[in-house]
Design a binder for these strands. Sequence first.
DNA 1: ACAAAAGTGTTGGGACTACACCCATGT
DNA 2: ACATGGGTGTAGTCCCAACACTTTTGT
Lengths: 222, 222
Amino acid sequence: MAFEEQRSVQAPPALRAIVSTVIFTLKAGQLQVCLSARHSPASLPETAVSASQSLEDAAKEQIFQLTGHADAYLQQLYTFDMDAHSGNTLTVAWFALIAADKLATAEHADANWVDVLDMPQLSPRHSDIISYALQRLRYKIEYSAVAFELLPEAFTLRELQDAYMIILNDFRLDKANFRKKIREAQILEEIDQYRETRGRPARLYRFRDDAQLETKARRFFP
Amino acid sequence: MAFEEQRSVQAPPALRAIVSTVIFTLKAGQLQVCLSARHSPASLPETAVSASQSLEDAAKEQIFQLTGHADAYLQQLYTFDMDAHSGNTLTVAWFALIAADKLATAEHADANWVDVLDMPQLSPRHSDIISYALQRLRYKIEYSAVAFELLPEAFTLRELQDAYMIILNDFRLDKANFRKKIREAQILEEIDQYRETRGRPARLYRFRDDAQLETKARRFFP
DNA sequence: ACAAAAGTGTTGGGACTACACCCATGT
DNA sequence: ACATGGGTGTAGTCCCAACACTTTTGT
C-alpha cells in the first residue's frame, strides 16, 4: 500500500478502538441517559472493538448488555480522537433510542439512568459526546419521526407532544398546531382504545408501518 | 480497564484505521471530486492513520498532499466498517471544500479531479462514501453558508447562485428570490469592484467576517 | 355545576413563488 | 438600437402561530 509506514523491526504501536453508545430513554418526565454503573466515577459504557466484529454489532451488544434489548434505534454519531490521555485510542460514538416500557427493570443493574439535564460529573470527553448526541437528537426529531422510538406502541397525542417538549426542553408547543401537523404528516393511525385521564379520555394512536420516517428537507438557506 | 480483552500469549490482530477525504471543488461549471491518480483503478485517497497523529491532522495532511493547501474546510463524515474484504480496517471518512482558485495547478499531479455526476467506476465502498458526502454537502448548504468555501474571496451573486445550483443539480432557483434571501441573511458585504460581463457589470461581494455561518434551524416536523 | 383535559376552527400576519419590470454595458 | 446579463418590486398564495372555542369525562 502506498501510504503504509516503514517502521523498524518492532511492530508499530497498535491502534485501539472503543465503542461508546449514548442510550436515551424517556422516563419520569425526563430524557434520561444510560451510564455504566460498573465504573466510578460515572461514565458512558465503553467496549473494546474486536477485530472480528463490526462496529454496529459491538454497539448492539453494548446496548443489549445494558438494557436487555437489542432492537433499539441506533445511529452512528462521530469518531473521536486521542485527547491528552488516551493516546492512540479511537472512540466511535453512537446514539440509541429505546422506549422505557421495553427496559427490563430488576436485572441489568449495570445500567444507571440519569436525567440528561442533571448529569453527574463526567470526563470532558464523555460530556462532549453526550452533548453532541443530545444536539443531534434534537435536530433529528425536527425533520424525522424518531420520537416514536421513545414511546410505547400505543400512545396519546398528548404523550407524543410531551416527548417533543421534553427532548427539546421547550414547553411552548401549541397543542392545536401540533396536532394539525401530526395529522398532516399521515404517520399515525387511530386505535379503538382510550387512555383514562382526569378529564375526557384520550384516543390512542400507533405509528403507521408504512409511514415515511424522514420528511423531505425544506430549504431555508438561502 | 474493565473491557480489556484477555487473549492468549499471541497479540490480538491489530486494528488498522485509514483516513479518506472527499475533497470537493467547483471547476468548469461542475462539482468535482479529487481522486488519487496513484492508483488504478481510480480511488479515493487513503492514508493509514499512525498512532501518534490525530485523525484530523491525517486528513489535513492528505488534503495538503493532493492540493497544496492545508486550510480547506474540513468535516468528519462517518466511520465505515469492515466489508467483505477489508477485514479489520476502519475507514474514517471526511469531506473537504476548497476553492478552485487556491489549487496549485502544475504540481500535485497525484490529484485527478472528476465531475461528481460523471465518476469513473470505483469500489462500492468508495462510491458509497462519495454519495454520502454529496448528500451531506447538499444538506449542509441548505442551512449554512458553506458554499462560500467553494468560491474565491470576491464573487458575484450570480456566481454564488450558480454554485448552489450546481451543487444541488437543480437549476430552477429564482434569481430575485435568491438575492432577497441572501440579502436578508446579512452574510455578505459589497466590494467596490465589478466583474466584467457581456452585459452590465456585476457587483462583487465578499463574505462577512462576522457572519453567522449556521442559520438557526427552523422546525418543520412536527 | 364545575374542573380537567381532549380535541377543533378561525383569523391575521408573515414568508415564499412567480413574474414582470428596470438598469448598465458592449456591439 | 438591441442583445445580454445584472438587479429590483409586487401581487397572490400558502403556511403558520395564536387563541378562542367545543366536547367528554369524573366528582
